[in-house]
């Protein structure tokens, strides 16, 4: 169990190293989904393994041992990790959960503000709202979703490019990119080793929406390229005149624009299968490691509770869960025979 943390740590580090490359070279839809899923997997496994340390610590407390009916000293003897390590692990988990909670609160307030703005701007769900000021375009996921576009930006683009822009934003809404980015952000909050994965996922979702816009406008890649390039130049040309949206912390770094236009002027990305397979493998490995760690602790608990006798064949975890279930059932319906 002490070594169970190695796999998620190594996986997180590898993911952090690979993420920028994957986002740049691999087909965007596969890249976004695989990176997000693996980030979530790393974070979940890390949380489970660290959480087990909390379980192990709690199990050594005399009140808990008295409640569950075993000798805390024997438990401590059989636990394969020193309590200091467990305390450290619990501390790390606590810090991660705190970061996640802060993130949740900030996003909730930002979403509430976006929701409020959405209701004031009006428009119908899934529709387009044109605002004065700024040279922005973005998708608001609240209340059925809306696309918000600055008049200046819209008027700077010829009509076909306007269609491309709107198709891009609608793709964000339809594929729930805000959720994909949120999952990645929370995973990075829990697992701080996932450095750079959220921004890689952000770039990948932009490319994904670009490719979806290409499909929507009938496969005209240079058209979408022109829309992105022109929008970037419009924004750069009038930096002082952004109105209310100037300081709005929206994602989308500058270096991405050139890369996106180049990618659109290149050939269609194809073949996300190898990446999906690699991602699936990573998730399976993490699941196995997590399950193994849980089983280790369950074995210790079972060993101690059974008074040192060898456990029955089969998974200790399954036994414990079954035993707990039986106990709960007998509490709820005392008359029934188990």
């Amino acid at each position: 169990m002490l070594y169970a943390l190695q796999v998620p740590v190594v996986a997180s580090l590898l993911l952090a190293l690979a993420a920028p490359l994957v986002a740049r070279r691999c087909p965007p839809r596969a890249a976004a989904l695989v990176l997000a899923a693996c980030a979530a997997g790393c974070a979940a496994t890390t949380a489970v393994v660290l959480g087990l340390h909390a379980v192990v610590l709690l199990g050594q407390l005399p009140p808990v041992a008295a409640l569950l009916g075993y000798d805390p000293g024997r438990f401590a003897h059989h636990v394969p990790v020193p309590p200091q390590a467990s305390l450290l692990a619990v501390g790390v988990l606590g810090a991660g959960l705190a970061r996640g909670a802060v993130l949740l609160r900030r996003r909730a307030s930002a979403l509430r503000a976006a929701d409020d703005l959405c209701s004031r701007l009006g428009g119908r769900a899934g529709g387009v709202v044109v605002v004065e000021g700024g040279a922005e375009a973005f998708a608001l996921p609240s209340r059925g979703g809306r696309v918000v576009v600055s008049r200046a930006l819209l008027e700077a683009l010829p009509e076909p490019e306007q269609e491309a822009l709107l198709a891009h934003e609608h793709a964000h809404l339809g594929a729930h990119h805000d959720l994909v980015r949120a999952v990645t952000a929370w995973s990075a909050a829990l697992d701080p080793l996932l450095v750079g994965v959220p921004s890689a996922v952000r770039y990948a979702t932009e490319r994904w929406a670009d490719e979806a816009a290409v499909v929507a406008v009938g496969g005209d890649r240079p058209l979408v390229a022109r829309a992105v390039a022109r929008a970037g130049l419009v924004g750069a040309a009038a930096p002082g005149d952004r109105g209310d949206w100037t300081a709005v912390a929206l994602a989308g770094g500058g270096g991405d624009v050139v890369r996106r236009v180049r990618a659109l002027l290149g050939s269609r990305p194809r073949g996300g299968r190898p990446l999906a397979a690699a991602g699936a493998l990573c998730l399976v490995a993490l699941l196995v490691v997590g399950g193994h760690a849980v089983e280790d602790v369950a074995e210790v608990v079972q060993h101690v509770r059974s008074g040192g006798q060898d456990g029955e064949p089969g998974l200790a975890t399954a036994d414990l869960v079954r035993g707990a279930g039986d106990r709960v059932l007998s509490e709820l319906a005392p008359g029934r025979a188990p």
Partner: peptide, 12 residues
């Protein structure tokens, strides 16, 4: 880092 919304294009 954890921006809720994504702009069509970022700062150039």
């Amino acid at each position: 880092r954890d921006a809720v919304l994504a702009r069509f294009v970022g700062d150039l």
